[in-house]
Design a protein around this nucleic acid. Sequence first.
DNA 1: ACACCACTGAGCAGATTGCCCAGTGAACAA
DNA 2: TTGTTCACTGGGCAATCTGCTCAGTGGTGT
Lengths: 160, 160
Amino acid sequence: MAIDHLDGRIIVLLAREPRIGVLEMSRRLGVARGTVQARLDRLQSNGVIRGFGPQVDPAALGYPVTAFATLQIRQGQGPDVRAHLATVPEVLELLTTTGSGDMLCRLVARSNADLQRVIDRVVGFDGIVRASTAIVMENPVPLRIIPLVEQAAEDSREGI
Amino acid sequence: MAIDHLDGRIIVLLAREPRIGVLEMSRRLGVARGTVQARLDRLQSNGVIRGFGPQVDPAALGYPVTAFATLQIRQGQGPDVRAHLATVPEVLELLTTTGSGDMLCRLVARSNADLQRVIDRVVGFDGIVRASTAIVMENPVPLRIIPLVEQAAEDSREGI
DNA sequence: ACACCACTGAGCAGATTGCCCAGTGAACAA
DNA sequence: TTGTTCACTGGGCAATCTGCTCAGTGGTGT
């Protein structure tokens, strides 16, 4: 779906001040409350806004080490490996990518030493042929969405 | 910081039903409203809960293609490359990892063809020596935090 | 001309929030 | 033991917001 400029402003406003209410948003944006309500409902039912879950910082939880593991999977073992990895709490995300049956796995650990334990648990499964791990040092651009939202909002404006 | 079992239940409850209020939470958890308030304030000021921003789905915005680019950076060009990548809306995340001056870059694009444009823009910068890209096919475990929160909550219980 | 759609501005009852207070019980130090 | 600190409880209060409804307006497409 395409979002227009008002949708974009709603999302950006929401991202900057999550605790803001519908009423205050309508005041800031200069539109009626019902309009903001309707836009928000539409954005959510379209799946553009998935939800408003709390953004938890693993580091603050005691898991300051992040790493990415690239896994090579034995033919046909994909589903089993996924099920295995889903049971490991330290696996925050799992993606399958192009290439020779590869998976990319985002991990966290309590320390570099603890990372060894996590990796052992991750790769301690039959279907995994090989694993290579890269430890994250810095995070110059933390996961963000606002620039993309603004881009998408502008795109829908082009044909005006 | 360590979180206890009640903190864990608050976060999980919040993750499952983000629109829930403090009052309703206190009812579900069987504690006083003030307690939930205080816990939430503490979790936020400790940085465990960073915020409640909207979770936007790039695919629903018209960017269904996700890819990871591994970049090799020329010595000393790191800061410039970061600044460059920060200006590209399709760059959702940028991390520096162990290895030979490597960066890992999460990208989205409107299509596989559009991905070429994005990559060209990403690598069209002097400090980048080499780039290799992996396109994401599936996402068996979408970015999650609940299992880790439950783990952390249990860990704090061990010594009881 | 007509129907459709989104937006506006308003009103209403009900629920929630932020804030305050005093009392209780547990942990801890002197 | 006594005293202090701290977190939690349960209550109350005014102000605010929400979900809902309604009629009126303007633009678009048939």
